[in-house]
Every structure is written in structure tokens, then in C-alpha cells.
Write a protein that binds this DNA or RNA. Structure first.
Length: 178
DNA sequence: ATATGGATGCAA
DNA sequence: TGCATCCATATT
């Protein structure tokens, strides 16, 4: 599931009409009640409830009180699971992304816009207000990849539990990863 | 290496 | 209520 999202296009339209989009180049899987690194790893809680619902909706939460992380609920209802989108190759409206990222909109590195889960959420203005939104809505759309692209498989990053599970996926030789 | 700083979940 | 923890980032 996390593999399938590699190469998909994520497009966000704000209420003010601003559009940003990017190609998904890095993902991580958090699946099942037996995954201690997942928010569902301690069972159903108010926060993890959405991961038990139907797939294809957004799960967005605040981490470290500072950054938002954007996930895609990935498993059938009753089975908890989500895919963390860790990096995008920015496609649409890069200067706006740069402004949101507090970078100089006329002098910035595209490599620094969406190369991390907090960065891409900031660049696409994805906050908890989008939590539980359908990913085929007017606000957020995901266009699936038509082919499975070459990718690497590694352990997940930034976690302290179940660090050995190889559930991080990234497009091979894509420079926009984190 | 370190500061940042809000929400969550669990214990008390 | 209090408190440890947290799927990170920017800055030193």
C-alpha cells in the first residue's frame, strides 16, 4: 500500500483557490495493532480512531507541537493502518510553497520545499483542519501512479520502537527525499 | 548538539 | 491534574 502511493500525485486546493501539488517520492507504512510505532499500536483511542475507518481519507496530526504530518488511511475498516507521506517532488506553485516555508520566494532550493513530512505539510498548507477529509474531495485529490516505479526499502525514520521493520519506501535516485 | 512547544494518553 | 512522550525542523 505504501509502495503503491509512490509516484502518485497529491494536489491540494485551499479555500482561497490556491493550488499546490507534488509527486509522492517517499512513504512509510504504519499498519496493524501490533505495530508499536503506530498511533494505533495501543489500540483504539480518540486520535487513532480514524485509522480504523475506511481507507482513502487523510489523517493529519501535530507532532512535537510544531509540525504537521500527513498520512493516508490505508487499510479496510476495522483494520488500523496509515501511510505517512514523507517527501514530495514539488510540481505546482513552488514560489507559494517557498513563501509558506518562510523561504525567499525568488531564491530558494526546490529540494528544501517538501523533503520531509513536516516540510511538505507546511508547503501544501496541510493542517489538522484537513483531518478526515476524503482524498478525492475538492480540497485534496490523489491521482494514483499508473506504473510501479523503482524504489528502495529501508527502516522507518524518527521512531524509537520497532526500528528494524523495513517499512520506508523511496523512489530510487530521486533527489527530493528526506 | 540543541531549542522549539501543543496535543495525546495514561497514571494518579 | 501532572507528566512523559512524540511518525521533525532550523539553528548553533
Amino acid at each position: 500500500m505504501a509502495r503503491d502511493l509512490l509516484g502518485a500525485t497529491l494536489l491540494v486546493t485551499e479555500t482561497d483557490g490556491a493550488v499546490t501539488s507534488g509527486l509522492i517520492v517517499e512513504t512509510e507504512a504504519y499498519t496493524g495493532t501490533d505495530d508499536p510505532a503506530s498511533h494505533a499500536g495501543r489500540g483504539r483511542t480518540p486520535r487513532s480512531e480514524i485509522m480504523y475507518g475506511p481507507p482513502g481519507v487523510a489523517y493529519i496530526y501535530l507532532i512535537y507541537g510544531v509540525h504537521h504530518c500527513f498520512n493516508v488511511v490505508s487499510e479496510p475498516a476495522q483494520t488500523p493502518g496509515a501511510v505517512l507521506i514523507r517527501a514530495l517532488e514539488p510540481l505546482t506553485n513552488l514560489p507559494l510553497m517557498a513563501t509558506r516555508r518562510h523561504l525567499n520566494p525568488t531564491s530558494y532550493s526546490p529540494l528544501n520545499l517538501c523533503s520531509g513530512p513536516g516540510k511538505l505539510s507546511q508547503a501544501l498548507a496541510l493542517t489538522t483542519s484537513f483531518n478526515a477529509a476524503s482524498l478525492q474531495s475538492s480540497a485534496i485529490k490523489i491521482y494514483p501512479a499508473t506504473t510501479q516505479l523503482p524504489h528502495t526499502t529501508t527502516p522507518r525514520r524518527g521512531i524509537t520502537k520497532a526500528v528494524d521493520r523495513p517499512w520506508r519506501f523511496a523512489l530510487t535516485n530521486n533527489p527530493f527525499t528526506s
